[in-house]
Simulated scan of single mutants.
Amino acid sequence: MNRIFRDATGPCLAPGGSVVCVGAFDGVHLGHRALLARARALADQRGLQAIAVSFEPVPREFFARGKPVPRLTGAREKLALLLDTGVDSLLSLRFNAALAAMSAEAFVDDLLIARVGMRALCVGGDFHFGHARRGNVAMLEQLAPQRGFALEVMPDIGVDGTRVSSSAIRAQLAAGDFAAANAALGRAFSIGGHVVRGQQLGRKLGYPTANIRLGRRTSPVTGIFAVQVHGVHAQAMSAVASLGIRPTVNGTEPLLEAHLFDFDGDLYGRRLEVEFVAKLREEEKFADLDAMVRQIDLDARQARAILAGNDRIREAAPI
């Protein structure tokens, strides 16, 4: 059974010992999953627990001091993805000033060994930790024999000649290259949430939308998209979506709005997952609502064409 913990202090989570992997794990991409799978395999070989140590907020958010930081996954989604990898426990640390000030040695001694019961550690070659990121693989290679834990440094994972990393995937998404981003993620990029009530403007304009607030999460993508919406029926539904602040109506809060084709129903409160297939254009401010509707007509036709072609590709793919 998976267990989730938040505190850096407390009783040892694995008195019998554990194999640990540490990271922000934004996206839980193929590189992360290889690391987590190796920790799981080592734990099974040695009769130990597999424990993932992560952070919320992620360190980049803490050091940004309130400035928007794009993320591939929100806290809830990252948690679910990490637990799906088969770890026995997840220590999701509250990244705060105290943790940021913790020395690299204390991070190993007080947190990984005393709190998590680490007997073995799996990390990537660019792993840094502790105050001012002073800790690195070279330090771990010195500490491992002194502290009595095994260290395994995982090689980079590449897709089509490109190293898989969260920053690279964020850049691919921002550029609208969903094929490359999805290949590195090992799944389709999506944003999920519960449908909330909006201003009902879309319905008045002939384009009712399912609206999802992003909350504290900053999306790596903005603009107008062809999407597939999961959670309405057993099969995904084609849609055209907007993700942005809606400048034509003087919006300020980022909002994900999806118009589901050939659907008329009440989705309020339903949790939906919006899968991004293709970017159509950037968000823009129109002179009036009529001009905006004319562009939405074009967007909807383009999205239908793209998604119809996407469905044909899926149907033709070998099983």
Rank of each mutant, 00 (worst) to 15 (best):
L255G: 07
A234G: 15
D288I: 02
A236N: 09
V240M: 11
L298S: 11
E257K: 08
S242E: 09
G215K: 05
H233L: 09
R270L: 08
V240G: 01
T218D: 08
A300E: 05
R271F: 15
F286G: 08
P247H: 09
E253F: 00
I245C: 14
D262Q: 00
L289E: 08
E273Y: 00
A234I: 00
T248K: 13
E273W: 04
E253D: 14
V274A: 10
Q228D: 15
V227S: 04
F261N: 00
K279R: 15
D297E: 13
T248H: 11
E253R: 14
A278Q: 15
D266G: 00
V229P: 07
E273A: 14
G223V: 07
E275F: 05
A287N: 01
M292G: 03
R270H: 12
M292V: 09
F263G: 01
H230I: 10
V274D: 08
T218H: 13
V293W: 02
G223H: 04
K279I: 05
G223F: 02
F286L: 11
R217S: 13
M292P: 01
R217D: 13
A258P: 00
E275W: 04
A291C: 03
T222Q: 15
R301F: 00
A241N: 06
R281K: 09
V221G: 02
A234W: 06
R271Y: 15
D290L: 10
R217K: 11
F263I: 05
Q235K: 12
V240K: 09
L267S: 00
V221T: 07
R246Y: 08
N250Q: 12
D262H: 07
L255I: 12
M292H: 00
F225H: 07
E273R: 14
A258D: 00
I296K: 01
E253L: 12
T222W: 08
L255D: 12
V240H: 06
P247K: 09
T252F: 10
H259I: 02
L243S: 11
Q302E: 13
E283A: 11
T248R: 10
M292C: 03
V274S: 06
R270G: 04
A239H: 05
G244L: 06
F286C: 10
A291H: 07
V274F: 11
G215L: 11
M292Y: 04
V249Q: 09
V227R: 03
S238T: 11
A303D: 08
S238I: 00
D297L: 08
V293T: 13
V274C: 10
V229K: 03
D288L: 04
R271M: 15
